[in-house]
Design a binder for these strands. Sequence first.
DNA 1: CGCGAGCTTGATGCCGATCAATGCATGTGG
DNA 2: CCACATGCATTGATCGGCATCAAGCTCGCG
Lengths: 244, 244
Amino acid sequence: MTTLPPIRPETFRVACSSCNLRELCLPVGLSRDDVEQLDGMVATRRTVARGDTLFRSGDSFQSLYAVRTGFFKTCVTAEDGRDQVTGFQMAGELLGLDGISTDRHSVDAVALEDSQVCVIPYDQLESLSREFTTLQHQFHKIMSREIVRDHGVMLLLGSMRAEERLAAFLLNLTQRLQARGFSGSSLILRMTREEIGSYLGLKLETVSRTFSKFQDEGLLEVKQRQIHILQPAGLQKVVNGATA
Amino acid sequence: MTTLPPIRPETFRVACSSCNLRELCLPVGLSRDDVEQLDGMVATRRTVARGDTLFRSGDSFQSLYAVRTGFFKTCVTAEDGRDQVTGFQMAGELLGLDGISTDRHSVDAVALEDSQVCVIPYDQLESLSREFTTLQHQFHKIMSREIVRDHGVMLLLGSMRAEERLAAFLLNLTQRLQARGFSGSSLILRMTREEIGSYLGLKLETVSRTFSKFQDEGLLEVKQRQIHILQPAGLQKVVNGATA
DNA sequence: CGCGAGCTTGATGCCGATCAATGCATGTGG
DNA sequence: CCACATGCATTGATCGGCATCAAGCTCGCG
């Protein structure tokens, strides 16, 4: 068998028009022609190893990033050192929107596994979206969706109990994974109990205990970070007020 | 004394270029010429009586609203009826950004006192911001600022204790009032203890008790909704981890 | 093989929720 | 103008959920 020329990932053409995430990512709803306009803008990718930061709070803001592969968390840190996970991002989701307001990032974005992102230079996005109405509108929708998502998290943090929070979190994760073609019932958590706890406003022990409780009740199976959802409907009941 | 002709507010010319809020509102950072372009877009005002809603969750989204006078709250409601105040808006702040994502509003906006808003038809805002780079950029900054604000609320809800939450809330309110030319030390709350509690993820009794505690400690004076801040620095200490 | 990061589980305590009563303003109708 | 109702706020007593403290446990990895 003759050896093929080595694959050099860096040289791959980065092109939204041929990306399998285009139905989830920035290009949603754009025509074929419009998407091809994006190809000129999204010219580079960046690889981020597990544990490394894509950007940090305080860094100057230049670009947005679309997750191509991998998994991220974003964290805010208060002056007194307290910190809070504000979100988990997977393929097709945008990172960096926080930076637009002050030209500096206000959160840390950390890769929870080896990841790749597409770099979207922000000034180019602004000028392209002046030309292409659909792109402009799509971008606004993405920002608005982030605001709506944040409101949902506030509801969760402000008025739900531990079990309800974890159940809501798991259902949200599985929905997003399912939209990406993964199983809706089986998943591997990319984050620690502590990170889940930070996101949900709980301590890691409470997260662990709640997983165990769900397991005892037959709602799911937990083996470390491997989760099998056995009764999605049961979890949904927990999210609402099932005091079971 | 001769009677003056009656003032008919509806006929006042609505003009961003002559609005005293232009340094706080959408026009921030725009040149005189650019602001005059806004005058054509922001053509109408709407009056909302105390207790009435400007829009409701589920309403179709057409316009953004800039608070001109008065005070609003926004609430999300879960399917099970639980609800959560997601923000309080005062003069110069924008309402309705949540609606862009799905063309329907996802929160209720309720006036907490008799209020007036400027109506900003969203399709006109999009087309104007295709023409005027500074407007486009300013609008993006406002959306991004909302996202950053939401992250701050998540930090508060996820990792602060009752006293810290209330202190942070009061300092935030006074800062915003001060930016509008009001005293930084004396304010009248436009919302009930229950609404504060909902926003902060606390019960109204806890809010009330915490006010009393701050008063006992000499940090402020409370007389129903009248608040006098005596030691802003003391409140700031509470926001960080003063276990006092 | 043994170390360490992450996870589980138990015992205890505290913060804020809940339940309940009273107080205080505003407004309405007699 | 007062009596009473109503909505909101305060304060007390008790309870419960989650945090905290503390031990082991599991698993991947050098």
